[in-house]
Design a protein around this nucleic acid. Structure first.
Lengths: 126, 126
DNA sequence: CTGCGTGCCGTACATTTGTACTTGAATTCC
DNA sequence: GGAATTCAAGTACAAATGTACGGCACGCAG
């Protein structure tokens, strides 16, 4: 059972917006794009179509408008994406990645606290 | 100055091996591939050529054999790759990614300790 | 009715990616 | 020293990706 084809970079942007909106039409997704990210309406349409083909979202017609909604959760996509990436780039060792995230201020202090908690909890479980 | 074109997935595998070997010929890289990852010698050759074109490695002839060596450090590639990914997938919020790495046992207990230390240090700096 | 905007659907098309074959020179094995 | 091996280099080629255009139907402002 071959798993879903991976998301391409642009498809990820669209997926993110759809997660955010919950469900939406092409137009809504298009409008939700940050202004500086110039992208054509029909391009977004194509991405959504491809996302549907790949099984990440489902779309159904509501009148003459197609409404899309996420079919796969962010968690799942992270898992599939990151695991593949970490394997290819570091043979499975995720620490370099963590290090980067922590050291390069990519996360806020608040998040640091949450992180600490995650670690605690994980240690508890063990 | 437009930055380096991103690495493709397969190129990442090759980059990883080259980092591991420090520097190597096509043959050496090819042989370092895990046995189950069937891949042709000339395919590896192509990836290395592309990696060179993209500026990630440099290759120079030693006699009639070309020897490649990394030109960009892992850290840099992580930065470029992960930041892009996190942006597209989560609009810059790295926490979901961290959560995944910690919760899904992608890192060992030992690494957890190191992680804790990283967090401490980062907090110290602030 | 006659445009104009909005949508769908299909098609397009250059670039990148994954993967490899071919040619031709240098080298090594009998 | 002819055969087999080894490389570099060039070329190949289908699939995936990034990005968009065109045709056609539907509904609303004049």
């Amino acid at each position: 059972m071959t798993h879903r084809p991976a998301l391409s970079k642009s498809e990820m942007e669209v997926a993110r917006i759809l997660w955010q909106l919950g469900n939406a039409t092409v137009r809504e997704v298009h409008e939700a794009f940050p202004a500086e990210r110039a992208i054509d309406f029909t391009t977004v349409q194509t991405y959504l179509r491809r996302l549907e083909q790949k099984g990440y979202v489902s779309g159904k017609l509501d009148g003459r408008t197609r409404v899309y909604s996420p079919k796969v959760k962010p968690r799942t996509v992270i898992r599939e994406t990151i695991d593949d990436l970490v394997d290819r780039l570091f043979g499975g060792d995720a620490l370099p990645l963590m290090r980067h995230l922590i050291e390069d201020q990519k996360i806020s202090d608040e998040e640091l606290a949450q992180l600490r908690e995650l670690i605690d909890r994980r240690e508890q479980d063990k």
